[in-house]
Write a protein that binds this DNA or RNA. Sequence first.
DNA 1: TCTGGGGTCCTAGGACCC
DNA 2: TCTGGGGTCCTAGGACCC
Length: 440
Amino acid sequence: MYGLVDCNNFYVSCERVFNPLLKGKPVIVLSNNDGCIIARSNEAKALGIPMGAPLHLYKTLIKKNKIFTYSSNYTLYGDMSSRVMSALNYFVPNIEVYSIDEAFLSLKKFNVQSLQDEMFKIREYIYQWTGIPVSIGIGPTKTLAKLANKIAKKKSSNGVYILTISNQLTHILNGMNLEDIWGVSKGWGDRLRSIGINNPMQLQQANPRQIRTLVSVVGERIVYELRGESCLTLEEVVNKKSITVSRSFGNMINDKESLKKALANHAARAAEKLRYQDSICGGIYIFIKTNRFREQDLQYSNSAIINFDELTDSTTIIIEKSFKLLESLYRSKYNYKKIGITLLGLRQKSKSHLDNNYIIQGNLFTHKKNQQIYMSKYRDRMKLIDEINTKMGKMTIFHGSQGMIKNSKNIQLETGKWQMRSSYKSPFYTTNWDDILKVS
DNA sequence: TCTGGGGTCCTAGGACCC
DNA sequence: TCTGGGGTCCTAGGACCC
């Protein structure tokens, strides 16, 4: 079973820890520059304030109802987040920190009978230790755990809900909207409805292949996950694959020097984050934008990428290269609202010794029309492939020509274990070789 | 007048290789 | 000289998430 722990109204709850008078009162937290409303207490939600709403549209409502309003304090929220996560980790050894306020749990080692009591206990302790209230949803797949969490948030559940494959699930899926399912947006919901799939139950019963043609392998996975067949595994790896720092300006900016100043700051912050996770980057991406909400203004949005000759974590180099890109993007006739930088091609610094440990290069599994797995090119792979296929039994994992092997990195011998990157072409995949053997 | 910031993954298609 | 089939690598753009 999987669990999903979600902090209730996280940013608001953080503010409440340090100001208990806010309990029971309507509270909202604002984005950078106090532009948008990005967190709401239940009381504020009840007053009809939507997520992400621009503040200026709700000024009168806020005044009238005496809603407590806070600028965001990300340092505080980040710190509270790590407290919650380590408290959680104390009870559950295998967790995936999914976002600042959410974590997936692997509950394989827990006794199913006592699961509910255990979860109530964990919830209680987290509140005691951190002051943050959480909801816990449990299900046989990540997608169903997500769904269970939604139900756990309702008053009648007392913060914990366990979802199993049962008539109850059928009932629940029938009564929900497609968009209540993790991974289904309004866009996909519309596409699904256009072929007569109107609720999650109908999606669960749909032909996976048909869903795939409509919304890609990602949608196909959702179908299986709703059936209780796990396609998504716990990803405990923490390192980011890209790092972005961007901000909107309070006032619009026209001159190049001010843009450079902002960009240098963002680049320095990004490089800091990069070093913090002990990585080096292979290139950068820069973008600038005018204010898209001012339709009367001339609009301009542009970006550029540069790949470095050598991987680096040096602030000076990153700033220097970002200035070069800015030169190519800057046009003096526009007023700019936003600028940002993304570091690309991240690699683990301390693991770079693995580069010498390639065992196999090239394509391993290929999906042939006759559904067979075969070896593509090199004779000396044959033995190994045979062995792998034997162990895997009936389970076939295949992939297309891309992605699986980037720089021959998909299979590495590390501390005596086979590890494998995910297969993008099969709805079932795992990143852990042990899991593959277990499944087979 | 005022509208956030930071991520991941998948697909299509071009260039190139055997 | 002509041709077919298969594989790799890379990027842009478009989805989705919190």
